[in-house]
Design a protein around this nucleic acid. Structure first.
Lengths: 364, 364
DNA sequence: CTGAAAGCGCTAACAC
DNA sequence: GTGTTAGCGCTTTCAG
C-alpha cells in the first residue's frame, strides 16, 4: 500500500497533481520521475524498485503530464494544424475525420481552421498556428500564400500541402491527379456519345482547378471536339449559392445548352443539380451530368450522378504519414544538411459510373 | 528610425523573437514590455515614450507572444475543445464551422475530436483535452459519461453540452426541442392525411433520441392512432450502412409497409432513401417521407424531402456565447460562491415543407 | 514609472 | 543510480 502524505492537500486545492508531487511522494527527485515517465529508466539505469514505486504513484494519483509545460520545454506540442478551405465542406470534413484518427495513432491532436480561400485570412491563420507552436502543418493553400509557404520551408517546419500545390515550390504534397481525372471524366462523356460538352468550373488560378480545366480541354482536343465560349462557365469562388445557381440556369438555357456538363467540384455539381431541377431538364435524356468529387447526394440523386471520386481516406492516411515522418525526423536528428526528400504523392481519382450519362456499358 | 542592435543575431539563429528581445532592444525590462503588450500601459502608468518605442519594436520585429509560454503561465490556452460524435457528419461539420468563426471572434481556437459515440473513447478524449489545458469544453456527450461531466462541473470547468444533455445534471446546454420537433413532424404527417405511420430511429438511450421517439408517440396518441410493433424500427448506432439499409428495406416490405415514415436523424433518412430507391417505392404516392435534420440531399432529392431542420447557425452562435461568457467569468473573479447560473437553451426546430409528403398546402 | 525576481510544470545536461 | 539546477517565454507581485 502506498502512503500518500500529501494527498489531502492536493485534493483540497483541487490542484492537478504535478510531477513534483509524484517525486515528493516517492521520495525521489523530479528528474528520476521524469526519466521513468519518458521511458528512459533503462537508459538512465534507474533501479527497478524506484521505477516501480514511481509507476504505482503515477497510477494511484492518476498523474498525467501537463502538455503545455512539456510543450514549452520541448518545443513540441503534439499538435497538428489543419488548414482547410472550409471544414463544413463534405470533402474536407471527411478528410478531417481521417486525419484525426490517423494523427491520434501517432499521439497528435488536430487544431483546424478554415481559410474560406481568403489569402489574408490564410496568412493570419498560419501566423496563429505558428504562435501556437504546432508541430506540423497540413495546408490547403490559397493563392498568394507562396511567400509564407516558402518561409515555412526555409524554417524547415514539417508541412504537407493537400488538394493543391505550387509547382514552383518544392514542398511535400498529397494530391489527386486532377488533370487525368478531368481528362477521364471528359473522355467518358465523349465515349458515351456526347459531342457538345460544357464545363462549369471555378474562376480560380489555383493549379487544381487549372488542371481540371486543362484535362477537360485536352480530352476535347484529343477527340477533336470544339469548345465554344458559351460551353465554358467560370464561377467566382466567393459567389453566393443563389447567384451561382442562377448563372448555371442561364448557362443551361436551351439556345446554347450542351448535351453534357462537367462540374469540376462537388458543390458546383450540387448547385448544378439545383439549376437542372429548376429547369426541369431530364437527365440524362436531354443533358448528361458528371461531377468531380463524390457526395452522398450523387449516389442517391435520381438519377444517380456519375463522378470522379477522390480517394479521401487514402489522402488522409498518406498526408499524416508523410507529416509524421517529417516531424519525427526533425525531432530525431537536427539533420543540418536539410536534405530531406520531398514527398510528392499524386493519387488517382476513380470514375464512379452511375446513371447520369446515358451509356452505362462503357468501361474505363 | 529604430536601431536594431541584435537584429542580425536574431535573424541568423532563425529564432523567434521573444519578449526579452524586445525588452533588450528597447532598453527596458521585460516587465514593461509585458505591460505594454497586455494593454496595461495606462494602468501601470508607463511613459508615453517607452510605450511608443516598444510598440514600434514589436511591429518592426513582428513579435508575437508565444502562446504556449503564456498558456503555462496564465493557465489559459485560448483553446476550446470541441467533442462531437463525428466531425465528418454534415451536422457537426457545419456546426464546427460556425463554432470556429464565433470562437475566433473572441480569440479562441478549436481543437476537435470525434467520439464515435463510444464512451471509452469519449472519456479518453476528455482526459486529453484536460491535459492540454483547454479553456472550455463543447461536448456532445455519449452515454455513460455522466461521471466525467459531473467532475468537470465540480472543478468548475467552463462547459456547454450540445445536441443532448443529462436531465439529472445541471449543466449548460444548447439543444433543439426534440420532443416538439418530432411531435410537429408527426403531426404534420397526420394532418396530411396519413394514419399508418412508421418511425425509424436509433436504439439509443440518449435523451435526444428518446425525446424524438416520445414526441412521435405523443402525437400518435394525441390523434388516437395506433403504433404497432412493426411500425417502429430501432437501428443500433454502430451498425454498418449496408446492414442498416437492408433492415430498412425489410421494414418497408409491402406486407407491413406504413403509409408514411419518419426518420429521426438525417443519416437514417439518407439510408432510408437508399432503401426506398432499391425498392422503387414512389414517394410520396405510396410512401410519404419526413426526416429530422436537413441535408443538401433532401433539398435536391427527387422528390425533395420534407424535414424538421435544426437551427445549426443559431446553435453554434449560442453555444460559443455561453461558453465564452463562462470562461471570462471564471477568469475575471474567482467567484467562490459558484453561483453561476446555468444556461439551458432550447431552440425550436422548424418544419421545412417540401414534396415528400403529399399534402403540401398544410401550414404549421 | 520601472525593474528584479519568482515561478507556471517539465526536461536534461551535468554533477556527485 | 540519483539529485541539482538551469532554463523554455511569459506574467505579475513587490520593491524601489
Amino acid at each position: 500500500m502506498i502512503f500518500l502524505r500529501y494527498a489531502k492537500t492536493i485534493h483540497k486545492k483541487m490542484k492537478r497533481v504535478s510531477l513534483k508531487d509524484i517525486a515528493r511522494e516517492a521520495g525521489v527527485s523530479t528528474t528520476t520521475v521524469s526519466f521513468v515517465l519518458n521511458g528512459k529508466a533503462r537508459e538512465k539505469r534507474i533501479s527497478e524498485a524506484v521505477c516501480q514505486r514511481v509507476q504505482e504513484l503515477v497510477c494511484a494519483l492518476k498523474y498525467k503530464p501537463n502538455q503545455v509545460a512539456r510543450g514549452l520545454r520541448t518545443g513540441q506540442t503534439k499538435t497538428i494544424g489543419l488548414m482547410v478551405e472550409d471544414i463544413s465542406n463534405n470533402f474536407f470534413a471527411t478528410l478531417a475525420r481521417i486525419i484525426e484518427d490517423e494523427a491520434d495513432r501517432h499521439g497528435y491532436k488536430v487544431l483546424y481552421c478554415s481559410t474560406e480561400n481568403n489569402t489574408e485570412k490564410a496568412k493570419e491563420l498560419l501566423q496563429m498556428l505558428h504562435h501556437r507552436q504546432i508541430d506540423g502543418y497540413i495546408i490547403t493553400p490559397t493563392n498568394g500564400i507562396e511567400e509564407e509557404i516558402r518561409e515555412l520551408l526555409q524554417h524547415k517546419r514539417p508541412m504537407v500541402l493537400i488538394d493543391r500545390y505550387f509547382p514552383e515550390i518544392p514542398t511535400n504534397y498529397v494530391m489527386v491527379d486532377n488533370f487525368r481525372g478531368a481528362y477521364m471524366a471528359t473522355e467518358y462523356l465523349i465515349k458515351s456519345g456526347y459531342r457538345k460538352i460544357g464545363i462549369v468550373t471555378l474562376a480560380s488560378e489555383q493549379v487544381q482547378m487549372q488542371d481540371r480545366l486543362e484535362g477537360f480541354m485536352a480530352a476535347m482536343h484529343q477527340y477533336k471536339l470544339p469548345v465554344r465560349k458559351y460551353d465554358l462557365k467560370k464561377i467566382p469562388f466567393e459567389q453566393q449559392r443563389e447567384k451561382t445557381v442562377q448563372e448555371i440556369v442561364r448557362f443551361l438555357r436551351p439556345a446554347t445548352r450542351p448535351e453534357a456538363v462537367f462540374f469540376t467540384t462537388n458543390y458546383l455539381g450540387i448547385y448544378g443539380l439545383e439549376a437542372i431541377k429548376q429547369l426541369g431538364i431530364p437527365v440524362p435524356e436531354e443533358l448528361a451530368v458528371i461531377s468531380y468529387d463524390d457526395h452522398d447526394l450523387f449516389r442517391l440523386h435520381n438519377p444517380s450522378i456519375t463522378c470522379m471520386a477522390q480517394p479521401i481516406a487514402e489522402i488522409g492516411r498518406q498526408v499524416v504519414q508523410v507529416l509524421v515522418r517529417e516531424m519525427e525526423e526533425q525531432n530525431g536528428n537536427g539533420n543540418g544538411n536539410g536534405n530531406v526528400n520531398v514527398n510528392q504523392l499524386v493519387l488517382p481519382a476513380s470514375l464512379v459510373v452511375r446513371s447520369s450519362c446515358a451509356l452505362q456499358e462503357w468501361v474505363i
